[in-house]
Design a protein around this nucleic acid. Structure first.
Length: 647
RNA sequence: GCCGACGUAGCUCAGCUGGUAGAGCACUUCACUCGUAAUGAAGGGGUCCGGGGUUCGAGUCCCCGCGUCGGCUCCA
């Protein structure tokens, strides 16, 4: 057979050649370094024969995977490490049932079901890692075996490996596979489709990281398994560097920085709800102001609707049936009422309280209203998932003909907003969920609209099947936090259901009543979540226009206080957010404290500055900018605020 | 919600096998009046998350509750 190498050379090999043979044919050094081969994009074990060449496609493209192949190579040894972990667990915990153990981004995991009474904790890692090291030192080969599904099934039935049995049964039932592959390393054999490196010794550095619960097949009705997370690298140095990166990322965590910088904090008396200190409130309000400012030229008008509604409204909207478990329900005079988890039903009600002509559309109601959602306690996560929050929320009521333009305008608005922060978002199209309102035809239309606008704008997106809202499909805009976890920021949702359920109408040019279409959209999403992302994105060093304290005046000695106050007052009169450090402390101390607070500018004033009516400007982390008239600094600040420049 | 871990001063943490609660920072007071990342000294501050239990005695051991953290998506 003939194979094409990455440099274009053609390699000729006997028809029964393996990946290892191919590597050896290229060079003996490469043969030693090889972990696997990649044939036409498929990564395969070295020991497996290369796939039969197909006649019409020309020579297959061959690549040798070594420890320098990046992510693909890491995935191999991480998958290997998962098997070594399982091998160790089988020996240390007799009777343990194994399920699945894939490589994931930055590492791997393996899910186990322990016999009753056994609970694994991180304290056990040392013992498990020691056992894993034994298997690695023994350099056990990974041996692949393709066996009839029936044989594999018998084997795992004999071993009481229920989860493996279920996996094989599903493979046979759903995919009709005749054979499955088994991989053996040392005493351990696992159902696995591979591929693997040739032997355990290729795992040069690994570490178990955490233990967590995970439902079998992600289904909360099925047993909770014990998941062990770990990672592996080709050298201890890379492993240490990775662990250090994770540690540094933790320092950017908004849950650490927020309280540290005096922005917000949480209390046990209101789990999942934020207490905002004045500086945090300032940041919050600046973002609300940004949304208002950008909304006006785009035709948005602000409204205010109630917090608490009679259950009849939630029954009309469908929330009572489809969303009640996430709602805070209360009652007044024996009437059940619900705190709003979304603004849309209130906006529909508002729309219905006035007559509308086609000439009025599109109507764009915005409201940064406070929402309450009763999230599962285990889902709460700092500012990123709270039980009360406000959004830069708006609802567009328009005609069917206007839908495409309005959707496009929403996406443009979103990208213009993110550009201010230098954010790069990832798009997801979330389609119809199992629990939903409306007909399939409606969903076809709505999903079709979203796909059309995405394609028209040439935006690339992932599909998230079944994750749409119960009233309509949506385009979600995602960002990642400091630890790489993805969070939904913005959303653009298309809804035919609410207008219908609320009986919303407008009078058309034909003098007949028509039903408007509704677009739900939030761009920053929840202000709470957005601030979390911002704090982590900027490492707490917010841009001048957003930061709560833009400058702090630092007098050298107490005799400069009077001048310092006049500087502060002058700048405050120009709308700058300026503080004065009145403490009787050394200059070094005042500077240090201001640096730790990440205040962008320190204005040092002493005898010389009082004399010349200057301020000596020091920039956060940059150092001295030099002495300048107060007016010059004022203009510098104004310019940065106006341009919303990023640091 | 579920699995595991954790919860000691405002913050970061120490407190060995049960025997009278500690440090640094922060805070208060006093002295120093200082030129670009910590002046010195003294002092105040605790429901050891809450409730129950074991014990002569519980921050420490056991049970229950609350909260926080990691995870429950990445398909053998």
């Amino acid at each position: 057979m003939e194979l094409e190498l990455p440099d274009g050379k053609i390699l000729s090999l006997p028809d029964d050649a393996t990946g290892a043979d191919a590597a050896a044919a290229i060079g003996s050094g490469l043969a030693r370094a090889a972990l696997a081969v990649k044939v036409n994009g498929e990564v395969r074990d070295l020991a497996r024969p290369l796939p039969e060449p197909s006649d019409h496609d020309g020579p297959a493209k061959l690549e040798i995977i070594t420890d320098r192949s990046g992510e693909e190579a890491l995935q191999l040894i991480r998958h290997d490490a998962a098997h070594v972990l399982a091998a160790a667990m089988m020996e240390l915990y007799p009777g343990v049932k194994i399920s699945i153990g894939p490589p994931i981004e930055n590492g791997f995991y393996y899910d186990f079901d322990f016999p009753d009474g056994v609970a694994l904790s991180e304290a056990d890692f040392e013992r498990i890692e020691a056992k894993m090291r034994e298997h690695i030192a023994a350099d056990e080969p990974f041996v692949r075996e393709d066996v009839p599904a029936r044989d594999a099934l018998d084997r795992f039935l004999r071993e009481d490996q229920d989860y493996k049995v279920e996996l094989i049964e599903d493979l046979v039932r759903n995919d009709g596979v005749p054979t499955v592959s088994l991989y053996t390393n040392g005493p351990f054999t696992d159902l696995c489709r591979g591929p693997h490196a040739p032997s355990t010794k290729r795992i040069k550095a690994f570490k178990l990281q955490s233990v967590a619960g995970a439902y079998w097949r992600s289904d909360s009705n099925r047993p909770m398994l014990t998941r062990v997370y770990g990672t592996a690298f080709f050298s201890d140095k890379e492993l240490q560097a990775y662990l250090e990166r994770v540690e540094q990322a933790r320092a950017r965590d908004h849950r650490r920085l927020g309280p540290q910088l005096g922005l917000f904090n949480f209390s046990d008396v209101a789990p999942g709800m934020t207490f905002w200190f004045p500086p945090g409130t300032q940041v919050f309000n600046s973002l609300v102001a940004l949304s208002r400012e950008m909304g006006v030229p785009r035709g948005y008008t602000e409204v205010k609707t109630p917090q608490l509604y009679d259950s009849s409204l939630w029954k009309t909207s469908g929330h009572w049936d489809k969303y009640q478990e996430h709602m805070f329900i209360t009652e007044s005079a024996d009437t059940p009422m619900g705190l709003k988890p979304m603004n849309c039903p209130g906006h529909c009600q508002l729309y219905s309280l006035q007559p509308h002509s086609y000439r009025d559309l599109p109507i764009r109601y915005s409201e940064p209203g406070l929402l309450h959602r009763n999230e599962l306690s285990g889902a709460l996560h700092g500012l990123l998932r709270t039980r009360n929050f406000a959004q830069d929320d708006a609802h567009v009521f328009c005609t069917e003909e206007q839908v495409q333009d309005e959707l496009e305008a929403c996406l443009d608005f979103a990208y213009e907003t993110y550009a201010i922060f230098g954010f790069d978002v990832r798009l997801e199209l979330s389609t119809r969920p199992d629990e939903r309102l409306g007909s399939d035809e409606q969903w076809d239309t709505a999903e079709g609209h979203l796909i059309q606008v995405l394609d028209r704008k040439g935006l690339s997106y992932d599909i998230n099947p079944g994750d749409g809202s119960f009233y309509g499909p949506k385009i979600d805009l995602h960002m990642t936090d400091s630890l790489g976890r993805s969070w939904q920021i913005g959303t653009v949702q298309l809804d035919y259901n609410m207008p219908m359920r609320f009986g919303l109408t407008y009078t058309g040019a034909d003098n007949v009543e028509h039903q408007p279409v509704m677009i739900h959209r939030a761009l920053m999403g929840s202000y709470e979540r957005f601030i979390a992302i911002l704090v982590e994105h900027y490492g707490g060093e917010l841009p001048v226009w957003l930061t709560p304290v833009q400058a702090i005046v630092l007098p050298i000695a107490d005799r400069h206080l009077e001048y310092a106050r006049s500087v502060r007052d002058q700048l405050r009169a120009a709308d700058a957010r300026v503080e004065l450090d009145e403490r009787t402390e050394s200059v070094g101390r005042k500077i240090r404290d201001a640096e730790l607070r990440k205040i962008p500018y320190m204005l040092i004033v002493g005898d010389a500055e009082r004399e010349s009516e200057n301020v000596d400007v020091r920039e956060h982390r940059q150092g001295r900018l030099g002495s300048m008239p107060v007016g010059d600094f004022e203009r510098r600040l104004e310019e940065q605020v106006k341009s919303r420049s990023n640091p």
